[in-house]
């Protein structure tokens, strides 16, 4: 279990750093893009390393991040419809 958490930490950090550097170089100024890519990086790292799904705080975190991601996507879709 501990090695899976270490692997998850390394993967998640790497993905967040790579995505942030890429977005900064692309001069991206929309804050929600940074957050949504971090959330995606979390789910990708979680799916690949599977550190834990048994602990309640981790489950609550998964749900909270999913809800946040859904809100961001819904807001952007709403903006597209409005324009």
């Amino acid at each position: 279990m501990q090695s899976r958490i270490v692997l998850f930490t390394l993967m998640f950090t790497s993905l967040v750093v790579i995505s942030n550097i890429t977005l900064v170089f692309l001069n991206e100024s929309r804050i929600d893009v940074y957050i949504s890519l971090s959330i995606l990086a979390y789910y990708v790292s979680h799916a690949l390393s599977r550190p834990s799904t048994t602990y309640k705080p981790v489950r609550i975190l998964n749900i909270a991040l999913f809800v946040l991601f859904a809100v961001i996507v819904a807001y952007r879709v709403y903006e597209v419809f409005i324009s």
Partner: peptide, 21 residues
């Protein structure tokens, strides 16, 4: 600079995940 705020938010997610784990 909005991109700095974006990076900061992203780091906030990272830190929050580490605290939970």
């Amino acid at each position: 600079v909005n991109s700095l705020i974006g990076v900061a938010s992203s780091l906030g997610v990272l830190g929050g995940v580490f605290i939970v784990y």
